[in-house]
Design a protein around this nucleic acid. Sequence first.
DNA 1: GCCCATCGTGTCACTTAATGCCATACTGTC
DNA 2: GACAGTATGGCATTAAGTGACACGATGGGC
Lengths: 219, 219
Amino acid sequence: MTTEKRSGGGMSEHRRARLRLEISREASRLFWEQGVAATSGDQIANAVGLSTRTIWRHFRSKESCAEPVVMQGVVTLLTVLRSWPRQSSLEDHLATELARLRHEEPPVDIADEMLAMKMIRLADTEPALRTAWLMACDQTERDMRVIVGDRLGRPGGDLEVRLHAAAAASVVRVMDEHIGAAILAGADVTEFQDVTALARRFARAIRTATGGAVGDPVA
Amino acid sequence: MTTEKRSGGGMSEHRRARLRLEISREASRLFWEQGVAATSGDQIANAVGLSTRTIWRHFRSKESCAEPVVMQGVVTLLTVLRSWPRQSSLEDHLATELARLRHEEPPVDIADEMLAMKMIRLADTEPALRTAWLMACDQTERDMRVIVGDRLGRPGGDLEVRLHAAAAASVVRVMDEHIGAAILAGADVTEFQDVTALARRFARAIRTATGGAVGDPVA
DNA sequence: GCCCATCGTGTCACTTAATGCCATACTGTC
DNA sequence: GACAGTATGGCATTAAGTGACACGATGGGC
């Protein structure tokens, strides 16, 4: 009752998120198959087996239906970053966690990842989808503020913290776009399978973008 | 006929941009006064003295009507960066150009600047407007790729270039949000009047965010 | 001067994204 | 099992956005 807003009655946050993701999957599939403009709210509702009215209860616009799927691509990395212990270096933490995710349950739905890449790709030509992608990245940045602020021992509203958080979020975004485009273009997927190398690339980019302020263990 | 797409017939790019800005001014004013949701396309059209149909000919959505005004805030800085000669340091170039802008014609409409700040502020609570702001920043980043790529002597699609461009664009965005929020909150405006200090702050932040790759003169 | 091509704008009809309202089915608590 | 609070569905409605066509302005060639 203290941490959770309400124990009974309301749909649990988790359940709501699942539903949003479900809708998002169908919407994204349709967007990819026939384009955003050619996909109607009715079609999405039909595909997921809900009434159109309910779709608009869960999403404020058609394009935003893509957000959860698009977010999925970043959400794992973000979760990993949130659990970053102060005494670890970024490289070590990323490498260990990414390796763990490879073998742990749940095995991170590959179909979702592909779908997310497709949406990001679509966002390159469809302005409507680009807003969804940018909104997702914006959310990433806000989360990043908390992480960075906590690391530097300063409030999230601090200018320095915000600059570093924005820079880090940019890295995640650009790398995501880059890797996604490469994979969709038919690049060798195994190039990104080496989690240690991947962790190093991410960590290096984040260190660079934050002027070294984010990456080292902190006392 | 060579530089300009078409000499006769079509509305010149410049004229079109002026009109878009005009519409954007009225739209932004209405958004600020009565909120985005409460402002209809008809109202905007009425305020600027055009038919509603024409509004949709120039903007693909209601929210995007705010883009030109919002963009104004960054466009000057972007113009300055585009004219950055290779042999100058970022600090020097920014300081000289910003100082020149203070006294040169046209004197950069202060009302537009204020309006832009208000829109960015509104974007903090209105998701619809946030997309407009993010789209403007996205455009900034694309422009930045060209600038950075040219500076580093590498193609704009290069991963390194994109990372640095994104970082630099982030700096511009966060600083803009920060300064805008401060001014709207009633901070002392004179704090940002010292162009030399301002130039130093921007340059320092960009140097940091790009790991020092962008800022020095290049041979 | 005139004619003509081209494009911007207005008007109207139309599609559809999105919201409000109310009745109903569901989910958990006592 | 009664009850409270919600999520959902269906329907009416608003408003965002588009297509089609006609008119007027602009500018270029003769």
